[in-house]
Amino acid sequence: MSALLTVENLKVHYPTRSGLIQAVRGVSFTLGRERLGIVGESGSGKSQTGRAIMGLTAPQALISADRLEFQGQDLLTLSPRERRALRGRRIAMILQDPKYSLNPVMTIGRQIVETLRTHESVTKAEAKRRALEMLEAVQIRDPERVFGLYPHEVSGGMGQRAMIAMMLICGPELMIADEPTSALDVTVQLEVLNILDGLVAKRGMGLIFVSHDLRLVSSFCDRVLVMYAGRVVEELSSGALSEAKHPYTRGLLDCVPKVGESRHPLPVLDRKPEWAA
């Protein structure tokens, strides 16, 4: 199997006045055309890992890796311009909350068309046609109408579908979804996930699904990486969640409530300094 993405010993550091902050401290994994989940608590470095792959970390970040290759291409030696050409066209990213991640003064249609016309030279009419197609693909019933709407005029679920449309229109091979459903209502979450899942499967993309929701990730992904304090502490295939060995993962799983069960006292998540070592 040829790897889509190879990450070896990825580190993301931030120099600050009080010293170096090590957000990601040596993460390694390879990704084929599969769905990989990355879970962890806030500050575990899961989002930073995703952003480092995209090349979207803050300018002062120091990024190093033994290997960071996308389809055999070393991402770290690419010029900013080449890196930019990859973004949106071959590697795309979905952000958390469509309320903030869509430009409020631009219609949804224009924002989708913009991605397409940045990477491909197509006529305006052709771009619009493809944007409408894409809106239909994310199961928006009335694409013509939604095309002309502003982000504040649509619901969260609709906004996130528009976001998916905007990021998928150029047909990327790798999609990084950074908490794509955390800001949505539970009922809408599943809808959006199903749409995303369907498109990823149909187009044979690789997906990195960053989330703090272990259950959601395990039911949705093929493999799960559990991160803690900037490191991967455990890698599991999603069917084998119950076989988790690392005490942190066990702790996470233990916190999930079960219907009809009463526990006293409620379990508290353990954090031992030696796990972070």
Binding site: M54, R87, G88, M93, L95, E114, T118, M163
Partner: peptide
Amino acid sequence: QEYVVAARAKGLS
């Protein structure tokens, strides 16, 4: 703002 991150993720200049 987040939409700026999204615009970068789209590959805009």
